[in-house]
Structures are given as C-alpha cells and as structure tokens.
Design a protein around this nucleic acid. Structure first.
Lengths: 211, 211
DNA sequence: ACCCCGGATAGCCGATCGGATGATGCCAGG
DNA sequence: CCTGGCATCATCCGATCGGCTATCCGGGGT
C-alpha cells in the first residue's frame, strides 16, 4: 500500500494540456489530480479548497495575472502547496521570476512523462527540480554578465518597437527627451548594441519584448 | 452503432499535449486515435501505415521540418489525410503557410474540447474549419493589401536587425548606400512603419525574420 | 510590343539620432 | 552611513536617417 498519495492541482489555460497532464498523472498510482484551474482566480480558489501537495503551474494564463504572480499568491496561502512550473518557454527571465515567486521547480512541456512524474515526486518532498535545459541556461547566464533591464527601460523598448521617436516617447512617458535618450544609452550598453533597430531585435530575442 | 469511426493521428513534439488530445479524443465514441508522432519523419511513417482520416498537426515540432512542411509531405502521400492544424500561435504567416501546405483547418490549443471535436468531424467531412480568432485575423488581413517583401528586402531587414547602418549594409551587400535607402523606403511602405526599429519589430511579428 | 515591377543609383535637406559629459534626487542593500 | 542603481534632466555636435524626386535596366505577363 502507498503510504501517502501525492495530491496535485493543475493550473493551465489550455484544456488540452490539462487533459493530457491529468491523463498521465492519474495513471500513476501514487499521484492524484484533485483539481484543475484555467486562470489565476480559479487557481487560488481550487487550491484553497483542496490544499494539494503540488501545483503544476503554466506561466501563461491568457488574460489576468500570469503564472508567476499566481505562484506568489498560492505561496502566501495558509497551507502553501509546492509549485512546479510546467511551461513551454525557458527564458531566463521567466525562470528567475518564477523561482523568485516561490516555485520549487521548472519543467518544460516537451519533457517526457517519466521526468514529469519524478519532478512531481521530488517537488512534493521539497526538492528543487530543474529541467536540464533550464539548468544549463541558468548556469551559462550566471557566468555571463547578466544584462537585466529596468522596468522603465522595458517601457522604452516597447515604444521603441512601435517605431516611436525620442520626442514621441518623451511625450508618451511624460518625461523629457533627454531622459529618453539617457535610457536608450543605458539600453544600448546593456544589450550590447548601438542602434535602435538592433536593440529591438535583441530585446525580442532575449524575450524582453514579446513578439 | 456508429457507421464509421473517424481515425485520427496526432503529431506533436510535446508528450503532454499528445496525451491530452488522446485522452479527450478517445473518450468520444466516434473518434479513434490510431497513431502518434513526435516529429516529421515519424509522422510520415505513421500516417503511411495507418492511413488515418484526420491528422492533428502541431506547427512547431522542435528540430527538423516544421508542421507546415510536414503537412505538405502528408498531403503528397497516395492516400492523403485531412490535416487539422492544432497549435499555440495564430500569426497570419503561420496560418497562410499551413493553409498553403494543404491544411484543412486551423485551431488553437486553448480551444475548448467541444470545439476540437467539432473541428475534427468537420475536417473529416472535408470542411474547412478555422478558429474564430484565426478567421478574424485572416479577414482583416485579406482587407489590407497583403504586404509581401522581396528577397532583397528581407536581406536588408536581416542586416537591419543586426543594427547595421545604411553605409554598412551597402558594403555588406555590395551596392550603394542610395540603393539601401531605396530598399528601406519600400520596406517601410510595405510594413506600414516609418522607422528602422518599427520595421524590425513588425518584421519579426510577421515572421519575416526569425527571432 | 508594351508596361509594370524589382533592383540599382543619385542628390538634397531637414529632422533625428547617438555619444560624450555632467548633475540631481531617491531608495535599497551592504 | 555610504555606495550604487534607477530615474530624471540638460547641452552640444557630428553623423545618420527618412522623404522626395528622378533615372536606368532587365524580366515576366498581357
């Protein structure tokens, strides 16, 4: 007899993915899916009711708060579950945000089922589980200077990608043109480029901007 | 008794998604999942063996040929299946490429299961099934002049994204700076922008450039 | 044969960008 | 407490960009 079934809640806005994970997880006799949620609000409600051991969390939840924010909410509950992020993307920004929010693990959706099961069990025991590709990425980022752009700079990048000029950005952000240029200079330095076009390209590549 | 079960093959590089679709589809008594494939080569092999009525195709298949190319291969088989694209993204470039490759339908993964079943049945009958959001997008694109950039212009865009100046592009492409500027002007017109940064952003968004 | 389009080229000019430099206030972490 | 990052603003100046107009040539379609 299994001493203690691990109770799992799924949070994902894709019905197909929920069905898939449920099918796979429920087939394991030590794992139980006790709830599902399609968005942040549902997630909090369901977790509050079911107090699961592990929550499988998608990072992109369509409208409303994302997976990272939701993770934070869940970890602030009276009986916080372990949160295992299960997503498609492995940007270092995503990973860091999720881990910072209190996630205990980070898996990619293309992981083989076995790995998923091991991750769930490990997470339930309080271990930190990282997908190999994620771990690799983290290490190589740790080695390199780690260029983190500030929120304001991201804002500038967003407008930049819309093709706005400095004057227009200044008006949009209610600051002076000089400030905009200052931000831009910093962005260039951090991204290792020296033109606006290059900045947009690398920002998108680095997933600082979503295409 | 059901006169004819619809035979379905899944092509997706995510085990989780395959499991999900299989669980959902197999629960329908008029639908049968008769095979799965994780990449292009497997897809061709499995479809060749099983000659299904409908193939559910993911567009991003990790390494190797993508979903669009694979769709083309399947449609060139002796007994071609109907191909229903089931993916996360709805860029018009993706849709057009898939449809051009011979896809009979285009659904997003966040579609509710019911919609998926209807789509499979419709596709099997030879209907064309488009997700609402996809259909909307197509219509609004159909209304606008359909901006197709020339190969040379794509080249310019590539260098643009690398942050090169006009002079540098000219040297790189062995043409005069005037020519580069001319190309750029055309690009701006076609993409509906008026700055280099905006051009890069829309080019990536339109999948003219790969991020 | 004719015309349109893509590609290449030229020159002009005002607007803008990018780099350098310097300064201020705020707030968090050591 | 003090350093440092973030955000703000200011000026100057040379280089570059973007828009405009005009010409030329070759290939594909009518």
């Amino acid at each position: 007899m299994v001493e203690q079934r691990i109770r799992v809640v799924l949070v994902d806005d894709h019905p197909v993915v929920r069905a898939g994970v449920r099918a796979l997880v429920d087939a394991q006799d030590d794992l139980d899916v006790v709830g599902e949620a399609a968005d942040s609000a549902q997630a909090v409600a369901v977790v509050g009711e079911t107090t699961p051991d592990v929550v499988l969390m998608d990072l992109s939840l369509g409208e409303g708060p994302g997976g990272a924010e939701t993770t934070r909410l869940l970890r602030d509950l009276p009986e916080p579950p372990q949160v295992l992020v299960l997503t498609t993307y492995d940007t270092e920004a995503d990973v860091l945000e999720a881990v910072d929010a209190g996630a205990a693990g980070y898996l990619l959706k293309d992981a083989p089922p076995d790995e998923l099961f091991r991750a769930i069990r490990g997470t339930a025991r309080g271990e930190t589980v990282l997908a190999p590709s994620v771990a690799t990425r983290l290490l190589q980022r740790a080695a390199s200077p780690a260029p983190k752009v500030s929120p304001r700079e991201v804002e500038i990048l967003r407008l930049l990608a819309k093709g706005l000029g400095n004057k227009e950005m200044a008006r949009e952000l209610l600051v002076s043109e000089a400030t905009v240029k200052s931000h831009l200079s910093h962005i260039y330095t951090k991204l290792g480029v020296d033109t606006r076009a290059g900045a947009v390209a690398t920002a998108i590549e680095r997933r600082i901007l979503r295409p």
